[in-house]
Design a protein around this nucleic acid. Structure first.
Length: 584
DNA sequence: GCCGTTTTCGGCCCGACTGTTTTCAGTCG
């Protein structure tokens, strides 16, 4: 799977070309890169099967880009891009990340002051060499200095699990402050938008949209920039402001009048690519679409804008849920009325992966069961670690049996069904960490890799495939092993893993831990083409963890999954049938 | 460099905010 690699190639080339003031080509390259990234199919396989023709069938890829891809797949590089890189300044890509510094200003800096890297820029700013330049001044120098500081402090993306609660806190704080300041301002329509609303696994900054009458907007802005957690105000206008919180996260607030709320919500939710597609549809139909509404091009009359539903409807499209708005074919599907009916929070009947104090959990078996019951679940599976997981206090067989006894006792005191499970290590040779006579007594066997992450791809693939062929394995836990921002997924051939899972009727886990989100949306999309079943689990290590379900659910929705695709939407009886273990 | 139910040539999303301008370019989302 070289899709990401190939996409990266074009993103990089686009940056350099943009810096060189080349017009349009960077946009074409970025569009192609985005298509390749979201292909859901191995680009190398397409090329092997259909050659260059197969590549040009992908939207956004024409003759020239197809040639470059072919060259890269065959030789490992693109001659033209190699030359390009030699001509660009060393740190161009990094410098373009600095807020307020785009291709044009950057070119000026390189030409006039020889600035090629971030440290060059820092030196120039410190020595006040910028303000003498045409088009620059006192203020822009100050702003760049702050932008550099900000970039160095935190240019990493924020995990969904951090951003979502943070956005909710800021929203309720803003509501309260506005209410205190002027009781007439009713911020009942306020929501986070952007990649956060699309529930992407990581978020660049938090975007918030609020509805207010025009004359109230400045007051809302005043409240926003005076929130106690605000550290810096980047910009402040009457409808748009930008701040940075003390802990480093950037937050934008937009305020629009009621007649534009839906249009603005649609617009700021993105993705950018989705919006461009949508605008093109509007143009073709004689409309104009902006964040203020959908208008007739001729008369300028507004024909939609109150709600998102109205806008999609007037464009001849079924409503597209935010998680699907990634320009992965959702607009075509909406036009043909073939969008999936995405899985909903209320569809989930249980959680099939959690830990207790028996292994490395922080809450007792009883506490976890009580909390799960309070969440309204019909069933849960308790899945502490197996015996090889020494660091996580993995259960020896006697201790596992003791847990079964306690589960039997507690079952009488709770309404919720408690399934006996285990997160069993998949050992180096692909065997499971308990003997068959133990495994077959378990209701749910989650098999996971916890060691030997650096194995070569062929070995890791064999190891997982062997485990998937084990008749007592039910679920493959956190299948890629990645830890967001900390550990890359292990090298493994997912085509083969998915094939083996499908052939053996195994369920693939979507792990909801904010640091994992494993499988990710792209792999879910690919796995779905193998007709696989999934489960969405929290892998909780405490009662707090049980509420992480919404993050995994978000990824499932981003992966176009429907209720029927996810086994923990099934009633317990149906689930038990799937996980039945033959005794002989 | 891509693409076509307005086009095989001439478009390519659109609007807010800022700073350095003196009417607008650059950047961002």
């Amino acid at each position: 799977m070289k899709n990401r690699e190939v996409a990266e190639l074009f993103y990089e080339a686009a940056d350099i070309l943009e810096y060189q003031q080349v017009e349009w080509k960077p946009r074409a390259y970025r569009k192609a890169a985005q298509m390749i990234e979201n292909l859901g199919e191995d680009i190398e396989a397409i090329y092997a099967r259909k050659g260059k023709t197969g590549l040009t069938e992908i939207p956004g890829i024409g003759e020239s880009i197809a040639d470059h891809i072919a060259e890269y797949l065959e030789t490992g590089k693109v001659e033209k891009f190699e030359n390009l890189k030699e001509k660009a300044p060393l740190g161009a890509a990094e410098l373009l990340e600095i807020r307020g510094l785009g291709a044009k200003k950057m070119k000026k800096l390189t030409d006039a002051l020889g600035i090629k890297t971030l440290s060059d820029l820092k030196d120039a700013v410190t020595a006040h060499r910028l303000k003498r330049l045409e088009g620059f001044g006192e203020k822009s120098e100050e702003n760049l200095a702050r932008a550099i500081e900000q970039y160095e402090k935190s240019h990493a993306r924020i995990a969904l699990g951090k951003a979502l609660p943070l956005a909710e806190e800021v929203i309720s704080a803003l509501k309260a402050l506005c209410q205190d300041t002027n009781p007439k301002i009713d911020l009942s329509k306020i929501i986070y938008t952007g990649s956060l609303r699309r529930l992407k696994e990581t978020i660049g900054d938090i975007d918030i949209l609020a509805e207010a009458e025009k004359e109230e907007a400045p007051e809302v802005m005043n409240c926003f920039v005076s929130l106690p957690d605000v550290d810096q105000v980047i910009l402040k206008g009457s409808t748009k402001s930008s701040v940075i919180l003390r802990e480093g996260t950037a937050i934008d607030l937009r305020v629009v009048p009621p007649e534009s709320y839906g249009a603005a919500l649609q617009y700021f939710t993105g993705s950018k690519e989705h919006n461009i597609e949508l605008r093109n549809i509007a143009i073709k139909n004689g409309y104009k679409l902006s964040e203020y509404g959908l208008y007739l091009k001729e008369s300028g009359e507004q024909i939609a804008g109150n709600s998102e539903e109205e806008i999609y409807d007037r464009l001849g499209l079924i409503y597209i849920p935010p998680e699907l708005r990634e320009s992965r074919g959702e607009i075509k599907a909406a036009a043909r009325n073939t969008l999936p009916r995405l899985i909903e929070p209320g569809d989930l009947r249980g959680d099939l992966h959690m830990h207790t104090t028996y292994s490395e959990g922080k809450d007792s078996l009883k506490t976890m069961i009580g909390r799960a019951e309070a969440l309204g679940y019909e069933y849960i599976a308790v899945t502490d670690h197996s015996r090889s997981q020494k660091v996580a206090n993995g259960l020896e067989i006697e201790k596992l049996k003791a847990q079964w006894e306690e589960i039997d006792k507690l079952s009488k005191r709770f309404r919720i069904k408690i399934l006996k499970g285990s997160e069993v290590d998949i050992l180096k040779d692909g065997s499971l960490d308990y003997p068959d006579e133990i495994l077959r007594e378990l209701d749910v066997v989650v098999g996971s890799i916890h060691s030997g992450f650096a194995s070569p791809e062929r070995k890791m693939t064999e190891r997982i495939v062997t485990a998937l062929e084990h008749r007592y394995l039910d679920i493959l836990g956190h299948p890629s092993g990645r830890l967001l921002g900390r550990r890359e997924p292990y090298a493994v051939n997912f085509e083969k893993v998915f094939e083996a899972a499908a052939a053996n009727g195994k369920v693939i886990e979507i792990n909801s831990q904010p640091s994992r989100l494993d499988l990710n949306d792209e792999l879910i999309l690919r796995a779905k083409t193998f007709d696989l079943k999934f489960c969405i689990s929290t892998d909780s290590h405490s009662t707090t963890g049980l509420s992480f379900m919404r993050y995994g659910l978000g990824q499932a929705r981003r992966g176009w999954l429907e209720k029927e695709d996810v086994v923990n939407t099934y009633p317990c009886s149906r689930l038990k049938e799937i996980f039945t273990k033959p005794k002989t």
